[in-house]
Amino acid sequence: MPAEYVDLSQTLDPNTPVYPGDPIFSCCPTLTIEHDGNNVTSISMGSHTGTHVDAPYHFIQDGKRIDEVPLSRFVGSAVVVDVSNKAAKQPFVWSDLQPYEERLRRYVSEDASVILLVRTDWSRHWGTDTFFEHPYLDREAAERVITTGVRTIGIDTLSPDPTHLDPHAEADFAVHQVILGAGGIIAENLSNLGAIQDGDWIIGRCDGSPVRAFAWRRTCGTR
């Protein structure tokens, strides 16, 4: 039976939203089959464009860079937390995540490769101004997640922290500080998390940033 795959990535194009102040995405043909015998494209973007992973070094001066993060952090059993009932700019707190705590701890104790995915369904606003008004995780909830042993967290918003549209305003990156400070990694701008809400799935990501994130359904003997 063929494996069932679900793409969890956003598409990169000139309208790809970026965190205020970050470089925008651009893609220009450099060589063409017509004139050069092959197609080659020049790509310019920030390292946190589209669906991507934050390494500890993003916020922690002596933290691991993306090429230093163990590959095991990028593949693991998926636990999808549904907080899609949250409104714009509304925080979700530990009580929203606590029903999943036992499952997280069990997966960590079994193989230490569990990935917590936070489903807000805010990806439906991709490419609109509303996308920047996403719900976000509060600091205490992030701290409690870290105590479960989880070190890889993904979310379908621009950031697990609130987004400030003024790039010069003082921003609160408490969740980044907590997760990356614990040696964890954060995947942002995921999509289609509702498709893997139920069942047993495994998440896979490239060892770089940006990434192509995907999930495949667990089958007997996968563990």
Rank of each mutant, 00 (worst) to 15 (best):
G199V: 05
W122F: 11
E188Y: 01
F74G: 00
V145P: 00
L104C: 13
F214Y: 13
R73D: 08
E140V: 14
R212T: 14
P91L: 06
D67A: 09
V108E: 14
K89W: 04
L97N: 03
Y107F: 12
I66W: 04
Q98Y: 05
D161A: 10
R151H: 09
E101V: 01
V114I: 10
T148C: 11
I66R: 06
S84V: 09
N85I: 06
T148M: 06
D156H: 01
D207S: 14
D96Y: 00
N192D: 13
W94D: 04
H134K: 09
W122I: 09
V80A: 08
V145E: 05
A87G: 15
S209D: 11
I185C: 13
T130L: 12
F214Q: 06
Q197I: 04
L158Q: 12
D121G: 12
V108W: 11
S72V: 09
G183I: 06
A182W: 06
H134T: 12
D172N: 15
G154H: 05
I185P: 03
D111E: 10
S84G: 12
T120W: 01
V93W: 01
T130Y: 03
R124D: 13
D129W: 05
I66F: 07
Q177R: 10
Y136V: 02
I66Q: 08
R103Q: 15
V108M: 12
S113N: 15
V83F: 09
S77L: 05
D207E: 12
L193H: 07
A141P: 00
H176Y: 11
D156Y: 02
I196K: 03
W122V: 11
F132G: 01
D82Q: 04
K89R: 13
N85E: 13
Y100C: 06
I179W: 04
D156A: 10
E68T: 07
A141L: 05
T120P: 07
R73N: 13
E110A: 13
S209F: 08
N192L: 05
S109N: 13
A88S: 15
V93N: 11
A142E: 03
W126I: 08
S84Y: 00
A174G: 13
G194P: 00
P162M: 07
L165E: 13
A78T: 04
Q90W: 02
T128P: 02
V145W: 02
V211W: 06
S209G: 11
I202W: 11
P160K: 07
L104G: 10
I146M: 14
W94C: 06
F173V: 09
G76R: 01
T147L: 09
A141C: 09
L190Y: 10
E133C: 09
I203C: 10
S159F: 08
N189D: 15
G199H: 03
A169E: 12
S84N: 08
R212V: 12
I66E: 10
E133G: 06
K86G: 06
V108H: 12
V81F: 02
S72Y: 10
R106Q: 14
C206N: 13
Q98W: 01
S113L: 08
I66V: 09
E143C: 07
S159H: 02
G204L: 05
E188C: 15
E102T: 09
S113E: 14
T152M: 08
V178C: 04
D200W: 02
D207P: 09
F132T: 00
